[in-house]
Simulated assay, not measured.
Amino acid sequence: MSVLTTSVAFLLHLASSAAAPLPCEKRVVRLEAEIQGLKNVVSEQHRYILELQSSQSQQLQRIPNTYLDPQNLYRDCSEVFADGNVASGLYVIRPDGSPMALSVYCDMNNGGGWTVFQRRKDGKETFDRSWAEYSQGFGDSFSPDGEFWLGNEPLHLLTSQGNYDLHINTEDFEGNQRFAEYKNFRVDNEKDQYQVHVGEYSGTAGDALADARSVNANSPCKGGIKFSTFDHPGYQEADADSQRCIRYSRSGWWFCRCGSGDVHGQHFKGPFEAMSDDGVAWYIWHGWSYAIRSVVMMVRAADLRDPAPGVEQWTAQLQANMVADGAAHPRYDQ
């Protein structure tokens, strides 16, 4: 009996000795896998940073040196276009009163001369920003598909130079494209909390900024719509409702009745992932809960001069070449 007991004890000891390292080995394997995963993340982020730096360097190299002379800067993309530049891309401008030059994307489609001041494409850039960030601008304005906000202060300086039109391109998740255009677009200075002014509407997307035009007698924003952020609410309704709209949409915007035309809402990966009106919204087209896919906003001088002689022919030839290469820009006027 003692021999049997001793044998059993010996076997149990062997079993426990053999089994003990297994959990440790599994833990080591798991940790090594986690380390490798973290290395992959770091490597991917490093690759993305290098690509971004390379892209920005290439874009900056395309800016003609003559544009960098403070004495030879255009005031906006309308002047860039009127001077014979018909290719969409980065240009340097300096609006009246601006303390510095601005690198902006000029869209030469739809008649040319449009200064792009906002772009939403894929949700890579958060628009849940502070008052200071919205004032000075943020995001990637160097890449053709980068998301950004040019800034309330530059937008005020731009639109204070004269009479400007606002053009908004929108696209849903089915590839349908609509546009909205407004006359007499202007943004006041910071003292007036960047209050927005818009005039007559035209387009195919619907008038989602009707409250800003003061055409609705029942609008809570008949006194004008001031810009709002989570740290600087300027919304006209009750304070509690103001905070609700800003907190709900997680963005800065000219809020009136929350998300009626809030193109700075959360970017979702599908049309109906939004919780009511907290997505990128243009409610009069798709309703409150449909988060549209992309939005691009731009301004142009209403009194845009005719381009330099021959520009019309250059533009037609350029567009023909783009069509032939299969790289024509999409149209938003259908």
Rank of each mutant, 00 (worst) to 15 (best):
A15N: 15
A18Y: 06
A19P: 03
R27C: 13
V28F: 12
L38P: 01
N40W: 11
N40Y: 09
E44L: 14
Q45H: 08
L50H: 15
Q61S: 11
R62N: 15
P70W: 12
N72H: 08
A82F: 07
A82W: 02
S88W: 09
L90R: 08
I93D: 03
C106F: 02
D107C: 04
M108C: 10
M108K: 05
G112K: 01
R120C: 07
G123S: 11
R129L: 05
W131Y: 11
W131A: 04
W131R: 05
S135G: 10
S143P: 03
D145N: 15
L150F: 09
L150P: 12
P154S: 14
L155K: 00
L157Y: 02
L157N: 03
N163V: 14
T170Q: 11
Y182I: 03
V187W: 00
N189Y: 10
T204M: 09
D211F: 02
F227V: 02
T229E: 02
D231H: 00
E237R: 15
D241F: 11
S242N: 14
R244F: 11
R244M: 04
S251C: 14
W253A: 02
C258M: 11
G270M: 03
D277E: 04
W282S: 05
Y283R: 13
I284R: 02
W285E: 01
H286F: 02
S294V: 15
M297N: 05
L304I: 05
D306G: 07
Q313R: 11
T315S: 10
A316V: 05
M322I: 13
A324I: 13
G326D: 00
G326K: 04
H329W: 13
P330T: 09
R331T: 13
